[in-house]
């Protein structure tokens, strides 16, 4: 049994700075995503689950359609397991409606001119992301109790909240602490993995061009995101 805690936009330097010991586990470092033209969420997770660079294919769909990507189960390494549980992963089974709503509010925020209304949009945006995070957390902990041979939980809160609030360090720290707690409650072999990190643009957050990984079983050096298929299968199934 192995558990993957997939955290969107978990930033290496912040994990270091806040000294989040559970997120760091025993071995941790940055992933190499330099093969991709931009650190795009959908591209990175699709490449992760298939073990191959899927950038060209995802980009060909265009900015709108890209978000609706659903990679068939048999093309992912999840299909190597008898009874896997994958929670809310982009490109596989994430909640399209939830993520569409997030992007919509994000757009609304940037297009709004009035400062008062802008604040209101930000509040709605944050509330929406937090509510989703609470639901995902709940389902994730339920899954850990279940009879699965592989569990992957995907947490978007650091990315979603980060885009509008990355400059608010105390808010980010509280989120990182929460994620740190989540990891601490997972038993057995585990991998923490992010697609990319985040860097501040004033109050906002932009993607940084490396990801984060950590394990409690071995040092992975500087892996590419497509290496995780092999790593997970090797550790879990000895393949």
């Amino acid at each position: 049994m192995i558990t993957v805690i997939a955290i969107d936009a978990l930033e290496y330097t912040l994990v270091e700075e806040f000294n989040m010991r559970n997120l760091k586990q025993d071995y941790y470092g940055r992933t190499d995503i330099s093969e991709f033209s931009e650190p795009r969420t959908m591209v990175l997770w699709s490449s992760f689950m298939t073990g191959e660079n899927r950038e060209a294919e995802i980009l060909a769909k265009g900015d709108k359609e890209m978000w609706n990507t659903r990679i068939p189960h048999e093309e992912t390494f999840f299909s190597h397991f008898k009874n896997p549980f994958v929670l809310d992963l982009p490109g596989y089974n994430y909640d399209l409606e939830q993520h569409r709503r997030e992007r919509e509010l994000l757009k609304e925020f940037f297009e709004e001119k009035d400062e008062e209304r802008k604040r209101e949009v930000r509040r709605k945006y944050n509330e929406n992301a937090f509510a989703h995070h609470r639901r995902v957390k709940e389902r994730f902990f339920e899954a850990l109790e279940g009879d699965y041979d592989f569990v992957l939980g995907y947490f978007s809160v650091a990315d979603v909240i980060g885009h509008l609030n990355f400059g608010n360090r105390s808010l980010m720290k509280m989120i990182y602490r929460d994620l740190d707690d989540i990891v601490s409650r997972v038993e057995g072999k585990k991998i923490v993995l992010s697609d990319h990190g985040m860097k501040a643009v004033g109050a906002f957050g932009d993607h940084s061009d490396y990801g984060f990984w950590s394990t409690n079983f071995r040092d992975l050096g500087r892996p590419r995101i497509t290496d995780f298929k092999r790593i997970v299968l090797q550790e879990a199934l000895g393949e």
Binding site: F130, H133, R169
Partner: peptide, 25 residues
Amino acid sequence: QICEALGRELEFAFVMDHLEEERSQ
């Protein structure tokens, strides 16, 4: 409010972090 949003209990350590952060900015 943020603790509530995250589904956690209020912790004083968070409050201190928060003050600290605001101050350093």
